[in-house]
Design a protein around this nucleic acid. Structure first.
Length: 712
RNA sequence: GCGCGGUUAGCUCAGUGGUAGAGCAUCGCUUUUACACAGCGAGGGUCGGGAGUUCAAAUCUCUCACCGCGCACCA
């Protein structure tokens, strides 16, 4: 027995050496695989955010994607798993903001160029760490093709897509009411809004002859109308008339209008219309532009009262500059004193829009932003819905398709402008006339008015706009050889939490740009939780560091623990105990190998009477494992292998061989099982393979990673 | 409001028509030369309630209860 086959199995001594062998072999690169392997298999890795260390969720995708990659490679396919890293726009901006804050700095005080440079080096530093960590997890991806979301060729592709969309009228710039985070000082897409249930006072206030209900008392100064339902008999005689009202800033007049969006049954059936600060009211105003004044801004970008428009009115300075919530409280008291408050319902339950990152209540604002048109016909949405309906893209688990369709149905235009520095700057230029020039480079002059004084849009793209183009951008669309060879890709494996953010956008933009779906199968995994089903978070101190446990128990054990017992789409429960359990399994395999090597040394394998029952069972296992892997039932395959190896092969077959040796059969079993286990436990199996004799004797020369998968 | 799920052993979960499973946990025995990171064995579930289809239901249908998730501009 070779000296390095000591007990127990020591992953620390084996794993790094094995990864190095794989990487040196070049077989991660499909071009280096045997030429006769022509059928392709492609996975584009969801690029991890290069703004911190890898967490356990990353270990999940590495495990699943590596299993698929290794399985298909062993089946003789030209297999490409393309790795990448994401600059992760707003996400990284938030991380970096926190870092700055700790240092007593603020991004709002750093010049754009300087901030960008600093963030770039921060990101590239993290990217390097991340790449090392992916290697430690055993990822058999092609590093020679690695891409970063800010690579020049990726940005060029993104710019080309934007230009095409603009030419087709599918992106447009418009002043619209958008979600604004007063902390992060940027707009957010509808997906980045988190609605939280809250209880707030509902104020019934007196507007002359009308009583109306509102939560947002402070927006009252921005009212431009009172709206009622056209069918509401109570207000019939008021519609179209101006009513005299008493306000905290003195007397005023306001018009009553009729709009079908007003619910007669809610409150008093009358609402105040504040188009500058409420999305509903903005829409109402758009329908009544001729009748009522436009939006009147009374809250600034920091969420403070801005009453400069009312400077000449009494009391305006009293509220000016107050935070929204402070203003609301003081106004409540003042209105009660003035007799303007009819009643207060103190515990009105409603949903409030907040920033998904910091929880700050969003302040709707009207801003010029770029939108991707989703609802027009024909639209990006139609392309995607049609392809999915036709079954060109298959979802795992299948129920995801219903969720996808439901979201697509409710889709609205997508705001892709962000007021941050970190990202791909929007390639649009303005001069002051109405003309917009879409170009990556500064145009010499405006073709319409001739002005040479052009300024670029200060905003950057929503990061999902660019990463939504990832599959074809990384493969070098339109002329790249890789694009022709590997697109459409086979599987997109990612977390179900980014189904809409990313997967849906990739399908839409992929179809739009290339005319083809970006991937045939979407496999979604769940969120990782601890053994008490708690979300992992630093504050709960229940975070499992994948690299830490891999160091302790071995990467292979971690990988198996992440696969077994976890089905697609469902949350993944992991605990250190579980990982330890599979560490024991690795050790079991190791020791069984020691037995096999010892037996073979004792009596070299030669033809014995074959055991049809045992071989039949093995054959069935090969068949089932293959079928399970083909249908993405990884947990099932892994569980069966575990059970078969331990409770049949080790407990029965090996035990029997101690009494009645049959080294040839033993070797057949061992070779087959090691191959079947390789996608799940790549390091230990590769190490064992080195020492295992081939069927004709002599050590295996080929790496296990490119050995042929057992024939089912 | 619309949509999607879940409810199986103490815990975490597999199992989708044919006599209830795994890991961990618990208990007992065994230091037998691959392995104590082990082996052998034990306990433990009327598969959320009810109804139906079927020769047969954890599995299909309906219904109720509870839990979870997603989407959503009701002031």
């Amino acid at each position: 027995m070779p000296s390095d086959f000591d007990k127990p199995y020591d992953p620390k001594a084996v794993e790094p050496e094995i990864y190095e062998k794989w990487e040196k072999s070049g077989f991660f690169n499909p071009d280096k695989l045997p030429k006769k392997w022509t059928k392709t298999f492609t996975i584009i890795m969801p690029p991890p955010n290069a703004n911190g260390a890898l967490h356990i969720g990353h270990a999940v995708f590495v495990t699943l994607e590596d299993i698929m990659t290794r399985f298909e490679r062993m089946r003789g396919k030209k297999t490409l798993w393309l790795p990448g890293a994401d600059h992760a726009g707003f996400e990284t901006q938030v991380v970096f903001d926190k870092k700055l804050e700790k240092e007593g700095r603020s991004r709002f005080k750093i010049p754009r160029e300087e901030l960008y440079k600093e963030m770039l080096s921060f990101t590239l530093e993290n990217k390097k760490i991340m790449e090392t960590q992916l290697r430690k997890l055993g990822a058999s991806c092609d590093w020679s093709r690695e891409k970063f979301t800010l690579d020049p060729e990726i940005i060029t592709t993104v710019y080309d897509t934007f230009k095409k969309l603009y030419g087709d009228g599918l992106v447009y710039r418009e002043n619209k009411i958008v979600n604004w985070c007063t902390k992060h000082q940027t707009t957010l897409s509808d997906l980045e809004v988190k609605y939280v249930e809250r209880k707030d006072p509902l104020y019934y206030i007196r507007y002359g002859p009308v009583t109306l209900a509102t939560v947002r008392l402070e927006t009252k100064f921005g009212d431009t109308a009172v709206a009622v339902n056209p069918k509401d008999k109570r207000y019939k005689n008021l519609v179209g008339k101006e009513i005299e009202i008493k306000t905290l800033l003195g007397p005023a007049k306001i018009k009553v209008i009729a709009d079908g969006a007003v619910d007669q049954k809610f409150g008093t059936g009358a609402v105040k219309v504040t188009p500058a600060h409420d999305p509903n009211d903005f829409e109402i105003w758009k329908r009544h532009k001729d009748e009522i004044p436009g939006p009147r801004v009374v809250i600034d970008q920091y969420g403070r009262m801005d009453l400069r428009e009312f400077w000449d009115r009494p009391n305006s300075k009293k509220y000016h500059g107050l935070k929204v919530m402070e203003a609301r409280k003081i106004m409540e008291e003042d209105m009660q004193k003035e007799g303007l408050m009819v009643k207060i319902d103190p515990d009105y339950a409603h949903a409030v829009a907040t920033c998904y990152k910091c929880g700050t209540i969003l302040e709707p604002r009207i801003l010029p932003q770029w939108f991707v048109r989703m609802t027009a016909k024909p639209s990006l949405r139609d392309l995607a819905v049609r392809a999915v309906k036709k079954g060109e893209v298959k979802f795992i688990p299948a129920r995801t398709e219903k969720i996808f369709m439901h979201w697509m149905k409710n889709l609205r235009d997508w705001n892709i402008s962000r007021q941050i520095v970190w990202g791909i700057r929007i390639p649009a230029w303005y001069c002051g006339c109405a003309e917009i020039i879409v170009s990556p480079d500064p145009p010499a002059k405006c073709p319409k008015c001739g002005s040479k004084n052009l300024v670029q849009d200060p905003d950057v793209f929503d990061t999902w706009f660019s990463s939504g183009q990832w599959p074809f951008a990384t493969l070098g669309y339109p002329n790249g050889k890789d694009f022709k060879t590997f697109y459409p890709t086979d599987v997109m494996e990612t977390g179900h939490d980014i189904l809409f953010f990313w997967v849906a956008r990739m399908i839409m933009l992929g179809l739009y740009r290339t005319g083809k779906i970006p991937f045939r199968t979407v496999y979604l995994h769940g969120l990782v939780r601890d053994k008490d089903r708690q979300k992992m978070s630093k504050s709960k101190d229940n975070v499992i560091d994948p690299l830490g446990v891999a160091e302790l128990y071995g990467t292979d054990a971690l990988r198996l623990a992440l696969v077994i017992g976890n089905t697609a789409g469902n949350d993944i429960i992991i605990s250190e105990e579980k990982i330890r359990g599979y560490r024991n399994f690795a050790n079991k395999i190791w020791n069984a190998t020691r037995f096999v090597l010892q037996e073979i040394k004792k009596s070299p394998p030669k033809a014995e009477k074959s055991d049809k029952i045992k071989l039949g069972k093995l054959k069935r296992l090969v068949k089932e494992t293959t079928r399970d892997l083909e249908s993405h039932r990884f947990h099932h395959a892994a569980e069966h292998l575990y059970h078969f190896f331990w409770h049949y092969y080790a407990d029965k077959v090996i035990e029997e061989m101690k009494k009645k040796p049959n080294p040839l059969l033993l070797l057949e079993f061992h070779r087959t099982l090691i191959k079947l286990l390789h996608p799940f436990l790549p390091h230990i199996t590769e190490k064992i393979w080195e020492e295992l004799p081939g069927p004709a004797g002599g050590k295996n020369k080929k790496l296990l990673m490119i050995e042929s998968w057992p024939k089912p």
